[in-house]
Computed example of a mutant assay.
Amino acid sequence: MSVGPVVAAVAAVAVLVVPMAAVRVLREYERGVVFRLGRLRAPLQPGLRPVLPGLDRMVRVDLRVVTLTIPPQEVITRDNVPARVNAVVMFRIVNPILSVTAVENHAVATSQIAQTTLRSVVGRADLDTLLAHRADLNEDLTRSIDAQTAPWGVQVQVVEIKDVEIPEAMQRAMAREAEAERERRAKVINARGELQASEELRQAADTLSRSPAALQLRYLQTLLELGADQNSTVVFPLPIDIIGPFLQKIPSMMNGSAVRGESHA
């Protein structure tokens, strides 16, 4: 068997394989951090980039936004209420070299920092702030986590608290508090309505008192409204100023009757 054709075939394969192994394709959202014999080189930009097999080691770095879910954390708020809180963190790499050389695994490190910061920030807030003013806590979390991940070339863009779980006893207490608050508001609204109605009635009484004819028309209108219901009983409003003189004469009439009775006796 001739050795020449085998050597030629191996040489042809080497000519095809070596150039392919010496070329890397980087996507638009990727950067390549290359170490040549352990020494850092400038990051490779997107496109077709050459590397030296056996001498260069390239680490691909993804620059897209990464969504990281923080598992539920057991926390105690400032007003001593236990709660379970989870959140979501969105971050991206802004410095590929630092993300490889400054930290072993930037995703794991960011997750651990986010968990500890979440417990710390929520522990400084009370339950009402955690439930009603979550946006302020989100901003505080974003600033705190980003300040700690910036040396790694990681930029934290958004931190959102997703769910807050509190004990059932606290939920029932909050429900009773909300019901009492609604009842208080209803009573206040009812009292304000009574006050406004009394003011309107006083103004109406002043207007009617200045015009007796208007008062008579109001009486007639009331009778018309009663008659429209086809009731067997008719209530006729009698103004007190009409029967007032008769009521004033009743004591004198009773005294006169008593005197006549004594004279007859």
Rank of each mutant, 00 (worst) to 15 (best):
V3P: 05
Q115F: 00
L63G: 05
V259A: 13
M174Q: 10
V6S: 08
I76M: 01
V235R: 13
E168A: 15
P82R: 00
Q248S: 14
V13M: 12
G47L: 02
P19Y: 04
R184Q: 13
G38N: 02
P237A: 03
L224H: 11
L217S: 15
L37H: 13
A87I: 03
P50A: 09
P19K: 03
V34A: 03
A205H: 07
Q148M: 09
E139G: 12
V259N: 13
V156I: 11
L223T: 03
R202N: 12
H106V: 14
Y29K: 10
Q230D: 13
S209Q: 13
A109W: 05
V259R: 14
A114K: 06
A132F: 11
E165A: 10
Y219V: 15
V6N: 06
A135E: 11
S211R: 11
I240T: 14
A175G: 03
A9M: 10
V33F: 04
E177C: 02
A186R: 15
Q221A: 15
I242H: 09
E104T: 08
A12Q: 06
V15A: 15
G4S: 09
V18N: 04
V188A: 15
A21D: 07
A14C: 08
G227E: 14
A186M: 07
M254Q: 15
K187D: 13
S99R: 00
V75Q: 00
L220N: 10
V81C: 04
N231Y: 06
V85S: 01
